[in-house]
C-alpha cells in the first residue's frame, strides 16, 4: 500500500528518529511511503490556543497537500485527532474546506490504527528486549479511541516485557500551551506521571505522541530518573539486526 506520511512538525523538527522509524517499519512490512514536501503542521497549537484563523490556513494546506492520498499516517495521536475531530469544526458548513475535510479526514490514521485496522497486522516482527510501560495519551485514548491497539502491537514484540502503568489514563499535564500558561499545575501533573512511570520499574516509557513524551521525558531527565521515553514507532521498527536503543 502507498502510505502518505504526515510526519508532523514536532517529529519533523525535534524527533526525526520517529519519522525514520515509521519509514523503516512500513518498508519492512512491504509498503511504500511518500512524503509530500509541502506539509508543515496540522495547526493544533493554534486551534487549541484560540487562533482559529491561523489554524484554518494550516488546515487548508493540509487538505491540499494530502488530497490525493489513499491513506495518511500521522504518527502523533493528537495530530491525527486534530484532523479527524477538530478540522470538521474549522470550515463553514458547505465551504470548500469543509467538503475537503469530510473527504480526507476519514483516511487519516494514527500509527496503531493504520497497522491494526488498515494493514491488518498486530505482529510487525519487531524485537525489543526491554521492559516497557505504555502511556495512553489523552487524545489517543479519548478522541481517537485507540483502545487496546497499541497494547496488542506491543505485546507481539519479541523480547519485550510490558509493565502496567498506574494511573495510565490520567493526563500527563502537557496540553500544548497549557504547559507554559499553567506551569505549576502542568509540572505537578508531569511529576505524578513520571513517578508512576518510574514505579513500573520499566526502562522505557512508550506513547504514540512525542509531545507528551517531550514533557514526561523532560521531567524524567530533570529528575535524573534514568528512564527513557520512546515513540511506539521506534519500538515497532526495532529488530535484532537494527535494534532501537532506549
Amino acid at each position: 500500500m502507498r502510505i502518505a506520511l504526515f510526519v508532523t512538525c514536532v517529529n519533523d523538527t525535534l524527533y526525526p528518529r520517529t519519522g525514520q522509524a515509521v519509514v523503516r517499519l512500513l518498508h519492512r512490512l512491504g509498503h511504500e511511503v511518500v512524503f509530500p514536501p509541502s506539509q508543515t503542521c496540522c495547526g493544533q497549537m493554534h486551534y487549541n490556543s484560540g487562533y482559529r484563523r491561523e489554524a484554518q490556513k494550516l488546515a487548508v494546506r493540509f487538505v491540499e497537500t494530502f488530497a490525493d492520498a489513499d491513506v495518511v499516517l500521522a504518527p502523533s495521536g493528537s495530530c491525527a485527532a486534530m484532523v479527524r475531530d477538530n478540522y470538521p469544526r474549522l470550515g463553514e458548513p458547505g465551504s470548500r474546506l469543509d467538503r475537503a475535510v469530510a473527504d480526507l479526514a476519514p483516511r487519516v490514521y494514527d500509527l496503531s490504527e493504520l497497522l491494526v485496522d488498515v494493514l491488518g497486522v498486530t505482529d510487525v516482527g519487531a524485537y525489543f528486549p526491554h521492559t516497557v510501560a505504555y502511556h495512553p495519551t489523552c487524545h489517543g485514548l479519548r478522541l481517537l479511541k485507540l483502545g487496546d491497539r497499541p497494547y496488542r502491537l506491543l505485546s507481539n514484540v519479541g523480547g519485550i516485557d510490558l509493565r502496567e502503568l498506574e494511573g495510565a489514563t490520567e493526563c500527563c499535564g502537557f496540553g500544548g500551551t497549557f504547559a507554559v500558561k499553567n506551569p505549576d499545575v502542568s509540572a505537578a501533573m508531569g511529576s505524578d506521571k513520571a513517578r508512576n512511570a518510574v514505579a513500573t520499574g520499566a526502562e522505557v516509557l512508550c506513547a504514540v505522541d512525542n509531545s507528551c513524551l517531550m514533557h514526561i521525558g523532560g521531567t524524567l531527565q530533570r529528575q535524573r530518573a534514568g528512564m527513557k521515553t520512546l515513540h511506539l514507532a521506534e519500538i515497532l521498527a526495532s529488530t535484532e539486526q537494527e535494534p532501537a536503543t532506549p
Binding site: 510526519v7 525535534l14 524527533y15 512524503f35 514536501p37 506551569p183 509540572a187 521531567t219 530533570r222
Partner: peptide
C-alpha cells in the same frame, strides 16, 4: 516556565525532511 521543571529536548542534527 518550561525549563524550571523540565529539560528541553535536544535539537537533532537534521530535521526529518
Amino acid at each position: 516556565a518550561w525549563t524550571d521543571t523540565r529539560d528541553i529536548p535536544e535539537v537533532p542534527e537534521e530535521s526529518f525532511r
